[in-house]
Structures are given as structure tokens and as C-alpha cells.
Design a binder for these strands. Sequence first.
DNA 1: GAGCTGACAATAG
DNA 2: GCTATTGCCAGCT
Length: 107
Amino acid sequence: MANFFECVYKCVNKIPRGQVATYGQIAALIGSPRAARQVGWALHQLPADTTIPWHRVINRFGEISTTCDTHTAELQKILLQKEGVRTTKRKDGLWWINLEKYQWTTP
DNA sequence: GAGCTGACAATAG
DNA sequence: GCTATTGCCAGCT
């Protein structure tokens, strides 16, 4: 791997349209199953107009956990819905994605 | 220059 | 079975 972030971006790019992956999955793919935090960091650094499908990456509960100003949960929800991923709003205001249905199964 | 923080997850107790 | 702790790596203070 070139650098950690590059690998993250590469893996995220591999996520098929209409599916989502967890931070742990991405971390595992780049060889560090416990580096989920860094995956979040990598996505946090991305500009709003990036081509990387950062919205397809969520936490292990299938929730949108970003509080970032450029990547709001609402924006992520919209992007996911555009791809045919159903998002459900929970009581606590978080958007929830049915991982059983939309989780990307890595080969 | 060193330590802390951060979109989390896996393992051990 | 659940709770607490450790690991990951880069950027920021």
C-alpha cells in the first residue's frame, strides 16, 4: 500500500452502487482489521465534491455516524437513497441502513 | 517535538 | 452474555 488513506479510497471505490460497507470491512481489506477509526479519518479528509463514494461507508450498526459539516448525515442519506439504498430514521435522529440487505459482501 | 484526538471495531475478562 | 480495554494511523494542538 502506498499510504493508508490511498488504500482506504481504493477500497471504498470498489463498493458497488446500491450497497454499503462498514468501517471494519474497509479496515480489514487494507490489512488492519482494527483500524476502523482511520477509515473514518480518511473519509473525513475528503472534499465534498470528491468522486469517492464515502456515503457507502457506515459503522457496524448500519448507522450514519458522521457529524462533519461537509458530510452531514442528511447528505449521506440523500446520496444513499439516490442509489436505491433505503434509509430509515430512528428515534434518536440517526439514519439506519438495513445491513442484512445492503451490506457489501467482500470476496 | 510529544501527546492527544478522532465518522470505530475486535478481543479479552 | 455483556462490559471494559486495547489497537489502529494520521492530523492537529
